[in-house]
Design a protein around this nucleic acid. Sequence first.
DNA 1: TTGAAAGCGCTAACAA
DNA 2: TTGTTAGCGCTTTCAA
Lengths: 341, 341
Amino acid sequence: MTKTIDRPKITKMSDLALIAGVSKSTVSRALAGNELVNKETRDRIAALAREHNYRINTKARNFRTKQSLTIGLMVPSSQSKWQINDPFFLELLGSIAIALNERGHELLLSSAKLSAEHGIDELVSQSHCDGLIFIGQADIHQQLNDLASFNHAMVVWGGKLDDQKYVTVGGDNFKGGYEATKHLLSLGRQRVALLGDNTTVEGSMRFAGYRLALEEAGIAFDELLCIRPEAVKNGGMKAVQKCYDSGIRFDALFAFSDILAMAVIRALTPRGVSIPDDVAVVGYDDIALAGYYLPPITSIRQDRELGGQLLVEKLLALLDGEQVASSLLETTLVVRQSSVK
Amino acid sequence: MTKTIDRPKITKMSDLALIAGVSKSTVSRALAGNELVNKETRDRIAALAREHNYRINTKARNFRTKQSLTIGLMVPSSQSKWQINDPFFLELLGSIAIALNERGHELLLSSAKLSAEHGIDELVSQSHCDGLIFIGQADIHQQLNDLASFNHAMVVWGGKLDDQKYVTVGGDNFKGGYEATKHLLSLGRQRVALLGDNTTVEGSMRFAGYRLALEEAGIAFDELLCIRPEAVKNGGMKAVQKCYDSGIRFDALFAFSDILAMAVIRALTPRGVSIPDDVAVVGYDDIALAGYYLPPITSIRQDRELGGQLLVEKLLALLDGEQVASSLLETTLVVRQSSVK
DNA sequence: TTGAAAGCGCTAACAA
DNA sequence: TTGTTAGCGCTTTCAA
């Protein structure tokens, strides 16, 4: 009786070692590119591995080396669901994924909501990743600080705060707010309204920029022109409608996001207000669709490619035990037809 | 000399076992909620774990159990970069993340491009996940089939094909195309143009629906009215402009995505064409921004919440060794002002 | 330059 | 109901 000898399936290092006629350790070293192993032997083992379709077991490897080459991404949200309704975040996400991948890491998406019982630290220790990227500080600055002091490798997309213990990468919100407003004023507009939440970290800085620009132009700040989006669906549009219908008039508006800028346009157009003739509008973030709108939206651009790259670089540096500083990214004004015909 | 006895840091199960006065195995069972262990003991150990801030080592656990509770998500792209420029995919991504999380799984984002040297199977074996979700079949149907026959747990968002060996969840593209066209015809429009790539799996089915609707209305198909977006930035807009400027006229247009519908509107509006008076436009996907556009865009809605949920359920069932069938999701027409005043 | 051996922290078969 | 024991597949000292 002849046994059918089909090539045995190579699933572990020891199998490959057997075939190669060397020890497990040598295979391990060879596959890791360790120079201790003869270049010749190394190549031979690599070839053998390829030939037998052997792939190192990452789970065993990660377990043994106590690292995963995986980075977790969290989008803090006080809401119950994973709410990346902000296209900007999504675009940033893409650039982070690319940057990580180029460096041989994987990206783990955490849809986890933060709550009292399930704090961040629980998430962190549960998640199978070496480091963390947070997109947005929202209202969890304190929690982030706590986490950072626990010595977790983490970076945050957002603004820099005085007492902050974590590393951030973020656009210059102050400058962005300043430039948006200045642009509107330079068009000769006198009554520049504001639409956005100025209680968040980012919002308050944009607000400060807005105020400075007004001040420099010698225009008094008018609380009535500060519109807060309501916390409901189409909240931005409703707030603007309410404001306008109450008789308040303005000839320009700076919105804290492109989505809000679109809301303004949708609110005012049906009321016979022409954009930009009657009201010039500037948004923020310059999301892809900003240029697709009608009229195309003037916006403050934040470089998400660079942002994602920096977040990743800093985090990996942190993991290597290096000292890392926060970065403030340049913003640029992209002029389109929502402000200038 | 007195030794300072600070509470030892509990990092492994055996430590906790020592404290609890039981064996490692019992702790393991207790923490896993195994009913074999006395409810009393179980609770005691759980309390102890919490008290000592012990968290099970997931890497060791995953290694041992040969599973990771992690699902990989891939967006096939022939491009060199991770191109989720399609907002619909991003919204689907969100619902997948939520569905996975509710079931205790994590989501690994693969930004990997597919190429000749680095095929899918390599990606799969490299990645640390139990199963895979593909968003879109694009042009890799054959590769997906190969992969599926290799017995990989995988589900695909997309259309169902005859020779397909993998499980899909997707909208009814045929019906979607049919309804979009029928809607336009029901408005009394006679010359319904089409904007989209009808060579993809999804596109060809929408195209078939379009043709059927025309046929039923007794309107001859006109090749000239089929506009293909160019493979460049703003390709949709350019293609429509070129078509229009060459003198071709139509009174309605069905676009294969909302983004394309926006492109149509941007292309025609400056030429004095009124939407929807002169040309009624229908898009596809009903992305969040479709309702935000000016005019708001009539669109074929695909239920992404349900889609994400089904993808996840099917994949987990597959992992449990169950037999799973593909799903065709209902589409609904959402009428807005781009087609009806 | 290579091999032998120990062990990462956990689970699960088997025994008690 | 609990404990004992034997690994999972890999990396890494240490010794040769």
